[in-house]
Design a protein around this nucleic acid. Structure first.
Length: 385
DNA sequence: AGTATATGTTTCCAAAACCTATACTT
């Protein structure tokens, strides 16, 4: 489960479930755990946790003599913490801290795949950037000050997994974040972020006369990509905080229901240059690996009439059919429609869409609906659509 | 039974390697 939100929730879980407990003894390590033995023993100590991006720091604080010990965990693909009866620990518990209760319980680091690990000491891994959840301002500045880094030569969907800049973002979050703005995942990262920087300056100029409350509302209603890197994971934390125990049966359901794009029927998916699956809707963007076509949406195809076969649609006819489409479907991006049609029709499609959007028949959906206002100009101009 | 997939990172500069569990196909 582990991306930034799961680490943040694990930290909260430890502090809430273990904050009032006294632990005793040493840390029991399994034979195959991916981390060092922990040189710590204490008759009575407390545990406290803090998360930063995809790392979690655990502090062992002796109540009597002895010096504290810190550990920094990464969860890999399957890591997490659970407080269980010491007599019946979960499978794949690789590090255990026993309480002084009778019968004792154990806080267990559980990790079936063992891609997770821990290190001794309280230092965060060098080279990981500020946390998207807990250090938003520093995170934002770190990205915008370093746009000349070659990390931003890559497609935005791949840059978003770079923990030097996006500490806490993982595969499901990148899909959900890009989906909110309908940014093509294989648009170049620098292009997207330079546009954002410019937009930020223009907005600041334009809004400087507004009262602070209006400014705040504008910001809330039109979040940019970097803001979404904070607010989208915050949504996950909020959605799951009443289900803090990672074993809770409803947890998975709540999370699945929250997802709008990742693994959702009807969305497209592709492998990125690292072989990871990126889920998205609409255009893949120019840096798509091998220039492959996106997989067709997995849901039922919308009825297109004769739209896809004929070459000589008049603009008016296409416009009418698009109106029907836009009315029949849930908020639709231009790219969604385009991916059902041969590329030879894309230019006409764009013309027709412009016509539909600028007409009153646009049905009130012209505002923000097929294309997100923060991205549309580039999306349309940059891809010959 | 075998295959493909998975919320991550490292080692090296792309693709394999590290692992287990689960769902789905012969």
């Amino acid at each position: 489960m582990p991306e930034g939100p799961e680490l943040a929730l694990a930290g909260r879980y430890i502090n809430e479930a273990c904050g009032g407990l006294v632990f005793s003894g040493g840390a029991e390590r399994s034979a195959v755990g991916r981390g060092p033995e922990v040189p710590f023993r204490s008759e009575a100590y407390r545990l406290g946790a803090a998360a930063r991006g995809k790392e979690l720091r655990l502090r062992l604080e002796p109540l009597g003599p002895g010096s504290p010990q810190a550990l920094v965990f990464r969860f890999g693909m399957s890591g997490g913490f659970r407080l269980r009866p010491a007599a019946s620990p979960p499978r794949h518990a690789h590090l255990r801290f026993l309480t002084r209760e009778s019968p004792p319980r154990a806080l267990c680091f559980v990790d079936a795949r063992r891609f997770g690990s821990w290190r001794l000491g309280d230092a965060w891994q060098p080279g990981r950037g500020p946390c998207v959840l807990s250090e938003y301002q520093a995170f934002r500045e770190n990205v915008l000050k370093n746009l000349d880094d070659k990390a931003f030569d890559k497609p935005i969907c791949e840059a978003l997994l770079n923990q030097k800049y996006f500490n806490g973002i993982g595969n499901y979050l990148r899909a959900e974040i890009l989906y909110r703005l309908k940014i093509p995942p294989f648009e170049k990262a620098r292009t997207v972020l330079e546009a954002l920087k410019q937009q930020e300056q223009e907005r600041r100029k334009k809004n400087s006369s507004l009262p602070p409350s209006k400014k705040l509302k504008l910001k809330r209603d039109n979040p940019d990509l970097l803001e979404l890197c904070h607010t989208v994971p915050m949504e996950v934390v909020a959605a799951e905080k009443n289900l803090l125990d990672p074993d809770h049966a409803d947890n998975h359901t709540a999370f699945k229901n929250w997802l709008q794009c990742y693994g959702v029927p009807g969305m497209s998916s592709l492998r990125d240059h690292n072989g990871r699956t990126i889920w998205f809707q609409g255009e893949p963007g120019p840096m798509v690996p091998g220039g492959e076509c996106p997989l067709l949406p997995t849901g039922p195809a919308p009825a297109l009439g004769g739209l896809e076969e004929e070459e000589n649609h008049s603009q008016a006819l296409l416009g009418r059919q698009l109106l029907q489409l836009l009315g029949a479907l849930r908020p639709v991006a231009l790219g969604d429609v385009a991916c059902w049609l041969p590329p030879s029709t894309h230019w006409v499609l764009f013309q027709a869409c412009s016509h539909v959007l600028s007409s009153p028949e646009g049905g009130g959906r012209g505002e923000g609906a097929p294309l997100s206002p923060s991205y549309s100009p580039h999306c349309l101009n940059g891809h010959g659509l």
